[in-house]
């Protein structure tokens, strides 16, 4: 009887009940914080997404699923693919951005890890210095770099893939460039910390066991860097899905993402219920995407 209720917790002999009480005490600040800052606004959003927009942009408390119907394309003028296209484009852009950031982060992280310890700090600083300025300013900085008289645009003209005397923005290329530069450190930093702590003897063991380069990476390096990579993927993919500053400035009106659409509803259109519905859709999509990532990254593991 007593045995059941007693337990050893890191060498301390305690009652289970005591432990539970202590646990909830430790948890409560976090739970309160989540409740106040995330769950409550979230719930408000859920409720609002089922309401209707009034004639003057106010919220009419008439509940229906009309906003969600509208989200998947059923408008007043019949069905259109516009919204779904925007959603699909957002997923695609977030996916490509994350992928490019990962592909760049591995070599960058290995490069920094291979520097002598004193230099590493310097390189990491170089990586995050751009973040000392505002996101909007960084996006505007790309205007300068992509201007017609700059080398990048000149190169594009020379290669015949771009008309002369026009800037390289607005374009999907400019959006990807902006997105990757915006999110790169969010992948590189966690990946770097994983790689720095890596057990290199596993790499040597794989080499010793006749593994090819690809196999060494997949079996000895990738599993060890996965925690950092996962953190990086979440930190990049989630905000990239909702990003609106970069596409707004570098993508122009033809390259709208979900973020822009939401911003429009809460801004100029003053259609909060529809905006809330899009936000809910974004949340659901993000969660599905991360689930897919989880499954896929597990699948890669065996052989």
């Amino acid at each position: 009887m007593i045995r059941n209720r007693l337990t050893v917790w890191y060498g301390e002999l305690v009652l289970r009940k005591q432990l539970a009480r202590r646990g909830s005490a430790f948890l409560s600040p976090g739970i309160l914080w989540l409740l106040a800052l995330l769950v409550l606004p979230g719930l408000v959003l859920v409720v609002v997404s089922f309401t209707e927009r009034g004639a003057y942009g106010q919220i009419e408390w008439l509940f229906s699923v009309d906003n969600y119907k509208r989200l998947i394309g059923f408008g007043m003028l019949g069905w259109s693919a516009d919204n779904l296209a925007i959603i699909w484009r957002s997923i695609w852009v977030a996916f490509v951005t994350t992928l490019i950031a990962i592909l760049l982060s591995y070599p960058i992280s290995f490069f920094i890890v291979n520097r002598p310890p004193r230099q590493r700090f310097l390189w990491l600083t170089v990586l995050i210095v751009p973040f000392w300025t505002n996101m909007v300013i960084r996006a505007y900085a790309w205007f300068l770099i992509l201007a017609p008289e700059m080398p990048l645009a000149k190169l594009a003209v020379y290669l015949g893939i771009h008309p002369a005397n026009t800037p390289l923005y607005p374009s999907s290329f400019a959006v990807y460039l902006g997105m990757v530069s915006m999110f790169l450190p969010f992948v590189t930093l966690p990946l770097y910390s994983s790689i720095e702590r890596m057990d290199w003897s596993l790499v040597e063991a794989a080499q010793d066991l006749y593994a090819s380069r690809v196999r060494v990476f997949m079996q000895a390096i990738f599993p060890q860097t996965k925690p950092g990579l996962t953190a990086g993927v979440i930190l990049t993919f989630v905000p990239a899905m909702g990003m609106f500053v970069v596409p707004d400035l570098l993508g122009g009106s033809k390259f709208m993402l979900v973020g822009n659409l939401i911003q429009q509803q809460f801004g100029s259109s003053r259609d909060w219920p529809f905006g809330a519905a899009i936000s809910m859709g974004l949340v659901v999509l993000t969660m599905i995407s991360l689930q897919i990532y989880r499954k896929k990254s597990k699948e890669i593991e065996p052989i």
Binding site: S201, L202, L209, S212, Q219, P223, P302, I303
Partner: peptide, 26 residues
């Protein structure tokens, strides 16, 4: 040439079977 490492260096994400099969699969 194969090595038994001082720290064993077994692949933590692979089962005993897969660890042993590693060289053959390579």
């Amino acid at each position: 040439v194969n090595t038994v490492f001082q720290s064993y260096a077994l692949f933590p994400h692979l089962t005993v079977f897969e660890n042993v099969a590693f060289g053959l699969r390579s």
